[in-house]
Design a protein around this nucleic acid. Structure first.
Lengths: 327, 327
DNA sequence: CAGATTCATGTTACCGGTAACATCCGGCCC
DNA sequence: GGGCCGGATGTTACCGGTAACATGAATCTG
């Protein structure tokens, strides 16, 4: 930067201003500096900038999983908004483990991110402590909570699962099974399961633990689960899989075994994955604002860094029951 | 750090050593320092460390797309290896645009990453210049090239497409259509298309441009493409879709329209996506080492940063034709 | 046992920017 | 014309670590 300053006949701070706040420099000075930057191929050093200004222009985000394209679209939303504002995204993968989340938070905080985005509201005590101490905007996403750490952006997994289960009940299905993700450390799946239970109660169905399975979010696990479920109770006439990966796995297994859907078995999913509307029969599912969650989380952080008044602490982006041929 | 040093009765550099190279500190001194770190809840500032040591412990990676789970698994591989070595991953999304790639490289280099990973061998001239000037390990992935920028990790898209097309020809299919991704700025799809052409030539089939379509990697685009292809020439008896997203789109459209696969139309894909083995009929496809590409790229960068001798410049991880029910 | 070597730790300067305040200059107002 | 004001630019002192070299004590070696 000193070299550039020398070449342009100005001081270093003027070069700094040309880069970070061009409006505060006279037009022709600015041009001279910009020419010097180009001709010297100057690449600023953000580490130095971060150290001096204590703003890193980094937002850290932790998702449980990135192969599952569900979160990929949320990341896309975050990235789309943040890139426009010249922020970079530090992405971490917790593998659905709170311990791993804590470990990621620890190392991420050493980079002094300007904001941090987590999935869900369940965290270790130590994680919460560290985030509080960091004094930066924190957004939790993909669920709603009464007492968010800071800001929460998502939808009610409980209400969504309840609505879908009731929908199945209202359509006349009498014996509705449930295949959910693993609930350990996972408030989203926990709430979905609770929503299912609540709806069954409201419908006056009997709650049968043997009609409920918790498995990892994989096509294969869904396929295996439905076989197990029907083995346990052949009278099951509908299944709610709390993730489209599971539901598609179920659907494909039904096709493979020649069980007509929805005549023998109705199948409902959760997420509205890309494939769900294309598969045959198309999948009834809960559409959730995956991409919007990312955009909103990013915008919320940017707004707060820009000093804008804090928005409401819980942003409910809602969900939508999408009825298709599988039920 | 000075506070910690004071509390532990040592100098700042000793605290620094406890953090970055614990072996170089006597055990009981180390324990004292570690206790002080914990009790003061000290979080080191990596921006300062980066500035002082000119090592950022960041690897930047640019993929064309992250919703498509194909690259997600490569990112997972990178992340798995780098995390163990205490490196962070800065992820950018070029949206299959070289201009966007250049813009990402520009901003990433300002963070002084210790290494950078790109997809494919096609880049703007300016991008190449900047990468050369940065003097850091560069890995290009997902293809092979005679003259990589530095190191290349992937497989031959040309040979893979050629092998699959020949496989279809050898099985007796007489009129093989091709649905590929958009080739603009994309050497992987370009090479796949070239492989298809080459194989047709070898098989003695007539090359018909009207049997070739280039569309975005979306289920829907695959579905639309197959309809268009069969409209153009109903004698088509097989189609090679150079991406499983497209192939699955084709397959589902055939099911929807009641065209038996493979009897009316054989379908082959590329990537071996998770769903491809589960769908009915299961999809014949080219299995590529997605996850391994990420691991190898990461390990290559780590090795070189560790001063290990440079490995061969082009690492061919190969591919595998997986024959399933769809052909 | 002197000198060399090794190990543990400390001193000093510097990495490359930016905040905060200082300075300078031209225009405006009364 | 003098004082004031605001915009453009400069000076200085850091931000929080680490490289490089220095120091001192313990251990080794012939």
């Amino acid at each position: 930067m000193r070299d550039v300053a020398l070449a342009a006949g100005v001081s270093a701070i003027t070069v700094s201003r040309v880069i970070t706040s061009p409006d505060r420099v006279a037009p022709d000075t600015r041009k001279r500096v910009e020419r010097a930057i180009r001709s010297l191929r100057y690449v600023p050093n953000l580490a130095a900038g971060t150290l001096a200004s204590s703003r890193s222009r980094i937002v850290a985000v932790i998702v449980p999983n990135m192969s599952n394209s569900v979160f990929a679209e949320t990341l896309q939303g975050l990235s789309d908004i943040l890139r426009k504002a010249d922020y970079h995204l530090l992405i971490g993968n917790s593998g659905y483990s709170l311990g791993e989340e804590q470990s990621l938070v620890t190392t991420f905080l050493a980079r002094r991110p300007d904001g941090i985005v987590l999935t869900g509201y369940t965290h270790t005590q130590r994680t919460v402590q560290m985030l509080r101490a960091a004094r930066i905007p924190v957004v939790e996403m993909w669920n709603l909570s009464e007492r968010p750490l800071d800001t929460m952006v998502g939808f009610s997994n409980f209400e969504a699962a309840r609505a879908m289960t009731r929908h199945l009940g209202d359509k006349g299905y009498r014996r509705i099974g449930y295949i959910g993700g693993l609930t350990h450390d996972n408030d989203r799946t926990l709430q979905r399961e609770a929503g299912y239970r609540e709806a069954l109660r409201e419908l006056g169905h009997r709650l049968a633990p043997r009609l409920m399975l918790a498995v990892p979010f994989e096509y294969e696990a869904g396929a295996d689960a439905i076989v197990e479920l029907l083995r346990r109770d052949p009278s099951v006439d509908a299944v709610f899989a709390a993730g489209d990966v599971l539901a598609v796995g179920v659907l494909l297994e039904c096709i493979r075994r020649g069980w007509p859907v929805p005549r023998r078995l109705a199948v409902a999913g959760f997420d509205d994955a890309r494939i769900s509307s294309r598969i045959v029969p198309p999948l009834t599912t809960v559409a959730v604002p995956r991409y919007e969650i990312g955009c909103t989380a990013a915008q919320n952080i940017l707004d707060r860094l820009g000093g804008l008044p804090a928005r409401p602490r819980v942003l409910d982006l809602g969900f939508r029951i999408v009825e298709r041929g599988s039920t």
